[in-house]
Simulated scan of single mutants.
Amino acid sequence: MSTAPALTVDDVTITSDHGKRLHAVVPDAAARLIYAASKEGIDPEARGMFFESARHPADSWVAAAVRTVFEAVIASPLAADDVHAYGTRFYRDFNGGTLYGFIVGVSAWDAANRRLRTGDSTRDLIIVSNATIATNDRRSLAGTCTFTI
């Protein structure tokens, strides 16, 4: 993943669906890499209610990309109205937190209708797992990135 292009705040569009859930729309190439990272370490045959991905190092591409998404969310006026924005406010205040929203590739977002485009062609562009950056008080884990589903 280190050869992936850097994701910038300008690459991220923050929007919401009709249910006022935040969606961070990113380039498809970035979404595919984030999707793959969100599934790392989770048994594809696992059944149950709570799973956490492999922990991605703080200096990894995916951790940097998720921090960029957090920065875009924090800068968005939509986040002020989001009841789940406390997760990203933790990031602003403590350098770690959770995005209670979706990260989606541009091809998986129907901007005109404010909804996801689902199906086989967009399956790897929709990250439904909550992205988390560990706070600085986690010492050796600080800055690492996981996804929970």
Rank of each mutant, 00 (worst) to 15 (best):
1 M>N: 13
2 S>K: 15
2 S>H: 14
4 A>M: 13
4 A>Q: 11
5 P>R: 15
6 A>V: 14
7 L>P: 12
10 D>T: 10
13 T>R: 15
14 I>C: 06
14 I>H: 05
15 T>F: 07
16 S>V: 05
16 S>H: 10
17 D>A: 08
19 G>W: 03
19 G>V: 07
21 R>Y: 08
23 H>W: 10
25 V>M: 12
25 V>N: 09
26 V>D: 10
26 V>M: 05
27 P>G: 06
29 A>Y: 02
29 A>V: 15
33 L>N: 04
34 I>Y: 06
34 I>E: 08
34 I>W: 06
35 Y>F: 15
36 A>C: 03
37 A>P: 09
46 A>L: 10
46 A>Q: 09
47 R>H: 11
48 G>E: 10
49 M>R: 12
51 F>W: 12
52 E>C: 11
53 S>A: 12
54 A>I: 09
55 R>L: 08
56 H>C: 08
57 P>C: 03
58 A>Y: 01
59 D>W: 06
59 D>N: 15
63 A>T: 05
64 A>Y: 00
65 A>K: 03
65 A>H: 06
65 A>S: 15
66 V>W: 01
66 V>C: 09
68 T>Q: 04
70 F>G: 08
71 E>A: 15
72 A>I: 05
72 A>G: 08
74 I>D: 09
75 A>S: 15
75 A>Q: 09
77 P>N: 06
79 A>I: 03
80 A>N: 02
80 A>R: 12
84 H>V: 02
85 A>L: 00
85 A>F: 04
86 Y>A: 07
87 G>V: 04
90 F>T: 00
90 F>G: 02
91 Y>M: 06
91 Y>S: 03
92 R>D: 11
92 R>A: 14
95 N>A: 13
96 G>L: 12
97 G>I: 03
97 G>V: 03
97 G>P: 01
99 L>H: 10
101 G>V: 07
101 G>M: 02
106 V>F: 00
107 S>N: 04
109 W>L: 04
110 D>Y: 03
111 A>M: 02
112 A>P: 01
112 A>C: 01
113 N>A: 13
115 R>F: 00
115 R>I: 01
117 R>D: 01
119 G>T: 06
121 S>A: 11
122 T>L: 00
123 R>L: 06
125 L>M: 05
125 L>F: 03
126 I>S: 09
127 I>D: 06
128 V>I: 11
129 S>F: 09
131 A>Q: 06
132 T>N: 12
134 A>Y: 08
134 A>R: 10
134 A>V: 00
136 N>P: 01
137 D>M: 05
139 R>D: 15
139 R>E: 11
139 R>Q: 11
139 R>K: 14
140 S>Y: 01
140 S>R: 10
140 S>V: 04
141 L>P: 00
142 A>W: 02
143 G>D: 07
144 T>F: 00
144 T>I: 04
146 T>Y: 05
147 F>P: 13
147 F>W: 14
